[in-house]
Amino acid sequence: MEIITSILAGILFATAVYNLLQKQLLRIIIGTVLLTHGAHIFIFTMGKLKTGQPPVLTEGVTDYTDPLPQALILTSIVISFGVTSLLLVLSYRTAQENNTDNMEQLRGESNE
């Protein structure tokens, strides 16, 4: 199971980098979203996937799930949601002001 989630995290990282290198602002934002999702899955995988185990240590329980990766992922989800919202607002404002979402045109480079 950990191998499958590691491969999934790698695929998400690869598609995120591909989207981050695109010219349109929306694809760059999608790349950042995929990058954060890949990081979430990577952190989750590093916490050793144990299904059906309690997240806290109580009496009589010898095998439990580490709650730290879950707490880190929950915090990271909130932060990534805020960053995504900020990026969407900034890209919308940029597209409205400049009438384009092409990064080359926003940098002032000509396409001749």
Rank of each mutant, 00 (worst) to 15 (best):
G82P: 06
G60S: 05
F81W: 02
S91D: 01
Q53M: 13
R27M: 12
L35G: 06
L68R: 08
R107D: 10
L106T: 13
I43T: 05
I29W: 01
S76Y: 14
A71F: 13
S110I: 15
Y18A: 04
S110Q: 13
Q96P: 00
G82H: 05
V61P: 04
Q22R: 15
G31A: 12
M46T: 03
A9L: 03
L88F: 14
Q24E: 15
T45D: 06
L8Q: 02
G31K: 14
P55T: 05
D63T: 06
L88G: 04
A14T: 05
V89W: 07
L86Q: 07
V89S: 03
Y18G: 02
Q96T: 01
T45G: 02
Q24M: 11
E112Q: 08
G108L: 07
F81D: 00
N98W: 03
N102A: 07
Q105L: 10
N98T: 11
S76Q: 12
Q22D: 01
I3A: 10
Q24P: 12
F42Q: 10
Q22E: 04
F13D: 02
G38W: 03
D101F: 03
L72M: 15
F13M: 13
E59M: 05
N99E: 08
P69Y: 08
F44L: 15
N99H: 14
D66Q: 09
T94A: 00
S91P: 00
K23Y: 06
L87A: 11
Q96I: 00
K50Q: 14
L68T: 12
R93I: 09
V56G: 01
L25T: 02
G10Q: 02
S76N: 13
H37V: 09
S80G: 12
I41Y: 09
N98M: 05
L90Y: 09
H40I: 14
K50T: 07
R107P: 00
T75R: 10
L86D: 02
T45W: 06
Q96W: 00
I73V: 15
I28R: 14
G52S: 11
E2N: 08
Y92S: 10
L106S: 04
T100H: 00
L49T: 03
I29V: 15
A14R: 01
F81K: 07
T84F: 14
I4V: 11
Q22I: 00
G47R: 06
Q24A: 13
T62H: 13
E104P: 01
S80L: 04
I73T: 08
L8E: 04
V83G: 08
F81E: 00
E2H: 02
L72A: 13
L35I: 03
P55V: 05
V33C: 10
T5A: 03
F13G: 03
T62E: 10
T62D: 13
Q53K: 12
I4M: 14
V33D: 11
I43F: 14
F81L: 11
L25C: 07
I11V: 09
E112M: 07
G38K: 05
Q24Y: 15
L25W: 10
N99S: 09
N99T: 08
P69V: 10
A71E: 06
L87C: 08
I79A: 13
I30H: 13
L90G: 09
Q24T: 15
